[in-house]
C-alpha cells in the first residue's frame, strides 16, 4: 500500500515538473520586457494557451527553451501559415516563446 502512495506522489511530482517548464514566470516576464517593454504575464499565459491549442492540435509541442532561437525564427513564419494563425495570435505565441529564451538550455 505504501508503494502505491509513493507511486501516486511520484507521478504527481513528475506531472507537475513537466507542467512547470511551460508555465510563464515573473522572471520570464522580466526577460521578455527587454524585447517587448509593455508585455504582461497575462499575455504570456494567453500565448501559452494558443501555443498548446493551435500548435498542439497538429503535433507534439516543444519545451520553448529546448529549441534554439534561430530554429524558432526559421519555423514560426512557416507555422503561422500552416496553423492559419491571425497576426494577433502569432504575436502572443512569439512573445511567449521569446520570454523563455532567458532560460535557454
Amino acid at each position: 500500500m505504501k508503494t502505491n502512495y509513493f507511486l501516486i506522489l511520484f507521478s504527481c511530482f513528475l506531472f507537475s515538473c513537466t507542467t512547470a517548464v511551460f508555465k510563464p514566470t515573473l522572471s520570464d516576464v522580466e526577460y521578455a520586457k527587454t524585447v517587448y517593454p509593455s508585455v504582461t504575464i497575462d499575455e504570456l499565459n494567453k500565448g501559452l494557451t494558443l501555443y498548446a491549442n493551435k500548435c498542439g492540435a497538429c503535433h507534439q509541442i516543444f519545451v520553448p527553451n529546448k529549441v534554439s532561437p534561430a530554429i524558432w525564427d526559421a519555423m514560426m513564419p512557416k507555422m503561422k501559415v500552416r496553423a492559419k494563425l491571425e497576426d494577433e495570435e502569432m504575436d502572443l505565441i512569439v512573445k511567449y516563446i521569446k520570454s523563455k529564451e532567458g532560460k535557454l538550455n
Binding site: C12, F15, S16, T18, T19, F22, K23, L48, T49, Y51, A52, N53, G56, Q60, I61
Partner: peptide, 8 residues
C-alpha cells in the same frame, strides 16, 4: 485541459 502544458 491540455495534456502537455497542464498537469493532466
Amino acid at each position: 485541459t491540455d495534456a502537455t502544458t497542464q498537469t493532466i
